[in-house]
Simulated scan of single mutants.
Amino acid sequence: MKPADDALAPPDLDWRSVSEQLYTMRRALLLGVCALLAILGGGLLGWLVAWWAGLVPVLVAIGVGAWGVPAIGRNQRSWRYAERADDLLIEHGVLFRRLVVVPYGRMQFVDVAAGPLERRFGIATVTLHTASASSDAVVRGLPPTEAGRLRDRLAALGEARSAGL
């Protein structure tokens, strides 16, 4: 990332990015939905209204796909996290940058989840739960081994630094 993009982040941290498989999964989902829209919407409108009306959903699907694929790539590259001595930092966002700092002592539990599609693409999601539901943090698109390592490390650090909750 460019230095101007790092205005929120503290300097000199070992930032880790998420897996490229997150981009691959989201791109496949987007293109699948666009293809479904083009085929079903185009076929239905072409059959019920006129052949030229069936082109509208096809053109919309092509436009959404052409805009969405690069946007998904930029979003995937914006996700990163860093572990510090007392807290975990998660940064993401393209247009609006967001930096979430979760102190280890405030974590109640760490959840690792992988749905069927995530498992197919070899990624998992780590969710850090705190006492406040609004301060929960999520790291999407980690390889399962890294997700397990992060879960174990965060659980151990959270237990060691618990704030008496």
Rank of each mutant, 00 (worst) to 15 (best):
M1F: 04
A4E: 14
A7H: 13
A7M: 10
L8W: 13
L8K: 15
L8V: 15
L13I: 08
L13K: 04
W15K: 09
W15Y: 04
W15P: 01
V18H: 01
S19M: 00
E20T: 10
Q21M: 03
Q21E: 03
Q21V: 01
Q21I: 01
Q21G: 00
T24P: 02
M25I: 08
L29K: 06
L29I: 12
L29H: 05
L30Q: 07
L30C: 14
L30E: 04
L30K: 02
V33Q: 04
C34I: 14
C34G: 03
L36E: 05
L37R: 02
L37C: 08
A38H: 10
I39T: 12
L40W: 07
G43S: 08
G46W: 09
G46R: 02
W47D: 13
L48R: 07
V49P: 07
V49C: 13
A50C: 15
W52G: 13
W52E: 11
G54H: 02
V56L: 08
P57S: 15
P57E: 09
L59T: 09
A61S: 12
G63Y: 05
G65M: 09
G65I: 07
W67C: 04
W67L: 10
V69K: 09
V69C: 05
A71P: 07
I72D: 00
G73F: 01
G73H: 00
Q76A: 12
R77T: 06
W79C: 01
W79H: 02
R80C: 07
A82S: 05
E83N: 03
D86T: 04
L89I: 03
I90G: 00
E91C: 08
G93F: 06
V94M: 13
V94K: 09
F96A: 14
R98V: 06
L99H: 03
V102D: 00
P103Y: 00
Y104W: 15
R106Y: 02
R106P: 15
F109E: 12
D111L: 10
D111N: 08
V112Y: 10
V112H: 02
A113W: 06
A113N: 15
P116D: 13
G122I: 01
A124C: 15
A131C: 08
S132H: 04
S134N: 14
D136F: 07
A137I: 15
R140Q: 04
G141Q: 00
L142S: 01
G148R: 13
R149F: 15
R151H: 04
R153V: 10
L154R: 10
A155N: 11
A155L: 11
A156L: 13
A156R: 06
L157W: 06
S162C: 14
S162D: 12
A163I: 11
L165W: 06
